[in-house]
């Protein structure tokens, strides 16, 4: 019996290539926000998803369009730009949204997100 029981769990290794979703996210953020800096990090490898998956992302966006906006509005802006991606397979999106001034003053180190631990979907 043991050999026919299995848990759907596959180990994942980090892919070095840039996936199509990753490129789309990068392009959309850069053009919609006239961003001076965009970094899209595919963190899917940290999660219980197939190799090469594009499900978990962290984005760092620096734009003067964030000037004067509270955090929640900056995040709403980013969520809105990536609405389509969030509805079609992107399960977690971690956002760092700063103005150029804040970015210059920060240490520019972005810590990685926690593992999400489950196959439950968003």
């Amino acid at each position: 019996m043991n050999n026919i029981l299995q848990v759907c769990f596959s180990a994942v290794r980090r892919m070095s290539t840039t996936g199509p979703v990753e490129s789309t996210i990068f392009n959309k953020l850069q053009s919609a926000l006239s961003a001076s800096h965009v970094n899209v990090i595919n963190e899917s490898y940290m999660h219980n998803v197939p190799k090469g998956a594009e499900t978990h992302f962290k984005v760092v966006v620096v734009s003067d369009k964030f000037d004067g906006l509270p955090l929640i509005k900056r995040h709403r802006l980013v969520n809105d730009i990536l609405k389509e991606e969030l509805q079609t397979g992107v399960h977690a999106l971690s956002i760092v949204a700063k103005t150029p001034k804040q970015w210059e003053e920060s240490d520019k180190i972005v810590e990685s997100s926690p593992n999400c631990k489950g196959g439950f979907g968003k």
């Binding site: 929640i72 995040h75 709403r76 969520n79 509805q87 968003k122």
Partner: peptide, 24 residues
């Protein structure tokens, strides 16, 4: 109008998810 969880509310108003709480 917030696509992910967790979500934190104070007095019925959405403050944000983990990123925002960390930054606060």
């Amino acid at each position: 109008d917030w696509p992910t969880y967790p979500q934190l509310y104070v007095k019925g108003e959405l403050i944000g998810g983990l990123d925002i709480i960390k930054e606060l």
